[in-house]
């Protein structure tokens, strides 16, 4: 474990908590893409199948459990408890356009052709594009609530910090996982224009609005 990965995990945890609290306290999921949340729940489910078979550390197991519980709780709140506030008209990105190609790629490009490894690879590729429905929804509505932009900033920062972690691990341990690195770079690049808007607008106290 290194400081970059720890900060990355905490940023990820912060993002998940911010979103869950936003929905729970405002009792509304306006402006949030339920499809992205479903994809994130799928990412954690396919990635953490080794939760009970492969003990790394208390930290590792606890974080996996927290991510799984929070992601399913968010999906539950969005599609059941606060369903009336879910903006399905603007959350129209076709998830199958992501899941099918990612599923195919996971079969073709992986480290080891075993079920657990292919599912892990699938979760890595899927996580890289899982935010697209959310970014697409913001581009359609042309704006995002400030709390949602904080959520996205924390979520985007997490994988950017992981990239620094991978550079650090390469030089200190000689460890690198090309699949995770390439997917992590794609994932972070997808946030770039949002990062620009966040830093130039939200940090100046303005509303995050996309140029129509």
């Amino acid at each position: 474990m290194n400081i970059f990965r720890l900060l990355g995990d905490l940023s990820h945890l912060l993002a998940i908590i911010i979103l869950l609290l936003k929905i729970w306290r405002t009792r509304s999921c306006a402006g949030v893409s339920g499809k992205s949340q479903i994809l994130f729940a799928l990412v954690f489910t396919t990635r953490y199948l080794d939760l009970f078979t492969n003990f790394i550390s208390m930290y590792n197991s606890a974080m996996k459990l927290i991510y799984l519980v929070c992601s399913y709780a968010t999906v539950f709140l969005m599609y059941f408890k606060f369903k009336a506030t879910y903006d399905s008209n603007h959350d129209t990105f076709r998830m199958e356009f992501l899941v099918v190609p990612v599923g195919g790629l996971a079969f073709l490009v992986n480290h080891d052709f075993t079920p657990l490894e292919i599912l892990w690879t699938f979760s890595i590729y899927l996580e890289a594009v899982a935010i697209l429905p959310q970014l697409f929804m913001i581009s359609k509505t042309g704006e995002a609530e400030t709390i949602t932009s904080h959520y996205l900033f924390a979520l985007g920062s997490y994988r950017a910090l992981y990239i620094v972690n991978w550079v650090f691990r390469f030089y200190t341990e000689g460890f690198f996982d090309l699949i995770a690195i390439v997917a992590g770079c794609v994932q972070t690049i997808l946030y770039c224009d949002f990062f620009y808007l966040y830093i130039t607008k939200v940090l100046k106290g303005k509303q995050l609005t996309l140029p129509a």
Partner: peptide, 10 residues
């Protein structure tokens, strides 16, 4: 390159 070790990252 060497196969990635145990999946110790989240």
């Amino acid at each position: 390159y060497d196969l990635p070790q145990l999946k110790d990252e989240l």
